[in-house]
Amino acid sequence: MTTHFITAEIDLQESPKQLHQAIETELQKQGEPLRWAVTAVDTQEQKAQVEAIVTNNDAQPSTP
């Protein structure tokens, strides 16, 4: 397993629920989301900037 920092730009949505879903959907394209947050909002462009940690090659722990 490896941990990665990624950023994403998401269109603002009509409700927090829709925004939450849009963020998770976008992040899952790049790995399994571990931790994320909207860190800035551009109200003119109606965009949310998201920073996230995702993991890849998600394997069950096993004996070395």
Partner: peptide, 15 residues
């Protein structure tokens, strides 16, 4: 991170 938030990596998460 660009926002100023701290984060980090773990070299051996499986361990």
């Amino acid at each position: 991170a660009p926002s100023g938030a701290s984060w980090g990596t773990i070299g051996n998460p499986d361990s």
